[in-house]
C-alpha cells in the first residue's frame, strides 16, 4: 500500500495525543491549574487535533469531511470521526474546568479516557477490517495501535506531569513496562505478518482470474503501459526496498532508545528524570513514524494479484 505521509502523521500523532488525553483523564498527577495545565492540554489536544486535520489532507474533498460522521452504523471510518469529536468535546470541558478553576472532574476524565481508547480502536479497525490486506486483517492490529497509543500517552504524561509514581509504580518503570509490552506486540504482529499472506488466505492469480484450474497463471500484458491509481495506491513497492533497515531504525529509535532513557530516568530525580522522559517521547515518536511507514509500505493488497 502507498504510505501517504498525511496518514502516517495522522495515525502516529493522534495515537499519541489520544493516549495523552486518556492518561490525563485517568487522573495522573499534573500541574494544579494555570499555565502548566494549559500547556499539557494544548499538547494533548493539539496532537489529537493535528492528527485529525492531517488526515483530511489525503481527502479529495476535505470541505466535505463533515459528511464522514453520518455512517457510524456501518463504517469504521465514520465511527472514528464520531468518537474523536465526542472525546475532544468532552476533553474541552474537562480542560476548561481544570485550567481555569483547578478542578479535575474525575467522572468526566474517565469518559475522556474511554472515548480516547474508542477513538484509537476505531482508527485501527479502519485497517484491521480489510480482508483485502491480510497482514492488517488481525486482532493484533488494534492491539498494536492501542499499545503504542497508551505507551506514548504514559511517556507524554511523564514528561509533562508532576508525578513520580502512579498506583505504586514509578513513572519511568511504567514507561518501561508499556514500551516492552507494545514492542512485544509489534514483534508478534511482524511475525504474524510473515505468515498472513494472500496465498495463505487461499488467494493467488489463479483464484483472482478463476483460471487456476487450467494451469499456472501469469500476467502477460498489463492493461496499460503506464501507471494508474490502483498501481500507485495499492501495488506500491518502493517502500519495501529498505524494509529490513527501516525495521531496525524503528526498533532503535522507538524501542531501544526510549527503553534506555526510561531505565536512566529510574535513577534520576525531578527535572532530570522528566528531561529524560521528554527525550524518550521524541525517540518513540520518531521510531513510530518508521514503524507506521512500514505498516503501509509492506502491506500487500489483493489487487496486486492482477498486476
Amino acid at each position: 500500500m502507498h504510505p501517504a505521509v498525511s496518514v502516517i502523521f495522522f495515525t502516529v500523532t493522534s495515537g499519541a495525543g489520544f493516549g495523552f488525553l486518556a492518561m490525563i483523564g485517568l487522573g495522573v498527577p499534573m500541574p494544579e491549574s494555570g499555565p502548566g495545565a494549559f500547556l499539557a492540554c494544548l499538547v494533548a489536544g493539539g496532537l489529537a487535533v493535528m492528527g485529525l486535520i492531517s488526515s483530511t489532507f489525503h481527502l479529495g474533498h476535505p470541505e466535505r469531511a463533515w459528511r464522514a460522521i453520518s455512517q457510524w452504523r456501518s463504517s469504521w471510518l465514520s465511527r472514528e470521526g464520531v468518537c474523536a469529536i465526542i472525546t475532544l468535546v468532552l476533553f474541552g470541558f474537562y480542560a476548561l474546568f481544570w485550567v481555569f478553576f483547578g478542578e479535575r472532574i474525575a467522572p468526566l476524565g474517565i469518559l475522556v479516557a474511554i472515548g480516547a481508547a474508542a477513538t484509537v480502536f476505531t482508527t485501527s479497525m479502519i485497517y484491521a477490517q480489510l480482508k483485502t490486506v491480510p497482514v492488517w486483517n488481525t486482532w493484533m492490529t488494534p492491539a498494536c495501535y492501542l499499545a503504542f497509543s497508551l505507551t506514548s500517552g504514559i511517556l507524554f504524561a511523564g514528561a509533562f506531569g508532576h508525578w513520580q509514581s502512579f498506583a505504586g509504580l514509578s513513572v519511568p518503570l511504567l514507561g518501561l513496562v508499556a514500551l516492552g509490552c507494545a514492542w512485544l506486540m509489534k514483534l508478534l504482529w511482524w511475525q504474524n505478518g510473515g505468515r498472513a499472506t494472500l496465498e495463505a488466505m487461499g488467494s493467488d492469480t489463479g483464484t483472482a482470474t478463476g483460471l487456476g484450474f487450467l494451469g499456472t497463471v501469469r500476467l502477460l500484458e498489463k492493461p496499460h503501459s503506464g501507471q494508474n491509481y490502483l498501481t500507485k495506491e495499492m501495488v506500491h513497492r518502493i517502500g519495501r526496498k529498505h524494509a529490513a533497515k527501516l525495521r531496525i531504525i524503528s526498533l532503535v529509535l522507538g524501542a531501544a532508545l526510549p527503553l534506555a532513557l526510561c531505565l536512566l530516568a529510574m535513577f534520576a530525580t525531578g527535572a532530570a528524570s522528566q528531561f529524560l522522559l521528554v527525550l524518550a517521547v521524541f525517540g518513540l515518536i520518531a521510531g513510530l513514524f518508521a514503524e507506521r511507514w512500514l505498516f503501509f509500505a509492506e502491506a500487500r493488497h489483493a489487487v496486486s494479484l492482477y498486476y
Binding site: 500500500m1 489525503h58 481527502l59 479529495g60 474533498h61 476535505p62 466535505r64 469531511a65 459528511r67 464522514a68 471510518l77 479502519i126 480489510l130 480482508k131 483485502t132 490486506v133 488467494s203 483472482a208 494508474n228 491509481y229 490502483l230 495506491e233 495499492m234 493488497h301 489483493a302 489487487v303 492482477y306
Partner: peptide, 17 residues
C-alpha cells in the same frame, strides 16, 4: 464523495479508481 479512497482499498478486484 469525500475522496478518502477507503472503498478502493476494500475492493479486492481493483474496480474503483
Amino acid at each position: 464523495c469525500i475522496g478518502c479512497g477507503l472503498c478502493a482499498w476494500a475492493c479486492p478486484y481493483g474496480a474503483r479508481e
